[in-house]
Amino acid sequence: MSREAVTFYSEATHVTAFALHGSTAVDKVIAHGLRGLVWPHCPVRYFVDEEEAL
């Protein structure tokens, strides 16, 4: 997910939950690297399993 996308969703008022999905350890490192950004005012969580994320 790009920084621009995170910024867009952090300003959105209709987001009730935010799931980051990835299948490798590298994906998880990248997702955690985005933590310095302003996130939406809702729950945000990283998932390995796509079904669980949905």
Rank of each mutant, 00 (worst) to 15 (best):
L34M: 13
S2W: 02
L37M: 13
R3S: 10
D27A: 12
S10N: 13
L37I: 07
H32P: 01
L37P: 00
E11H: 14
G36I: 04
M1V: 13
A53L: 05
W39N: 01
D49R: 15
T13E: 15
E52N: 02
K28Y: 05
E50R: 15
A12T: 05
V26M: 06
H21W: 10
T16L: 11
I30Y: 12
A53C: 01
E52M: 10
I30T: 03
Y46M: 01
P40L: 09
R45H: 08
R45N: 00
Y9Q: 08
R35E: 03
H32C: 09
S10R: 09
T7M: 14
T13C: 12
R3Q: 10
R45T: 02
L20T: 02
F8Y: 11
Y9K: 07
E50Q: 13
L37N: 04
A53Q: 02
C42V: 10
S2E: 01
H14R: 15
G33V: 03
P43A: 11
E52D: 11
L20N: 04
V29C: 06
E4G: 07
V15C: 09
H41Q: 14
C42W: 00
S10E: 08
E50C: 08
A5R: 11
D49G: 01
G36C: 09
S2K: 03
D27E: 02
F8K: 15
A53F: 03
E4Y: 05
F18I: 06
A53S: 05
G22F: 08
V48E: 06
E4H: 03
A12Y: 02
A17M: 07
A5V: 08
H14L: 12
T16V: 09
F8Q: 07
V38T: 07
V26L: 09
I30M: 12
S2Y: 01
A5N: 10
V15Q: 01
V29H: 07
A19N: 05
P43L: 08
E11K: 14
V48T: 10
